[in-house]
Amino acid sequence: MFSSLRSLWMVFLKMFSKRVTIEYPEQKAYLAPRWRGRIVLTRDPDGNERCVACNLCAAVCPTDCISLQATEDENDRRYPDYFRINFSRCIFCGLCEDACPTYAIQLIPDFEMGEYNRQNLVYEKEDLLISGMGKYHGYSYYEQAGVAVGVKPKGGGENELDPVDVRTLLP
């Protein structure tokens, strides 16, 4: 009983404290760099698409709102033929970013995506792709992977030996 009265008094006193309201949109709130907002696709340090169309983001997505199709360029470099996120379904959970093995898909501190028409919330690859590396700098998946896709020759990647000479008999 007493604690209820005390609460009433304390709440009453809040009348005289400073307001915490941030008057959006005149004032903007601070959003942390890891804030989970609009999803973007980034590029690697060479300016190529980071996405290798591995489908992990689509698989992990709890609302199944990501779909893509893999294709390859003339160097066998795999990339998404199309990459679509239906933001009218997206819950911005960030699992896709967690699942991404190449840092391609990232959530950025931007949430101002409102539309009058739901159809406009369907983002294609052109809408998602940005020209920079986003939050993670300097990482290029194809430098690490074992496949040769025009980025490096076989054995030219990080932590790789030159290709084996199958015909040598030396131990």
Binding site: V11, F12, K14, M15, S17, K18, R19, V20, T21, E23
Partner: peptide
């Protein structure tokens, strides 16, 4: 309610 919750309320 806003006043007691340190907000501005309808404005």
């Amino acid at each position: 309610l806003a006043v007691w919750q340190q907000r501005k309320g309808p404005n």
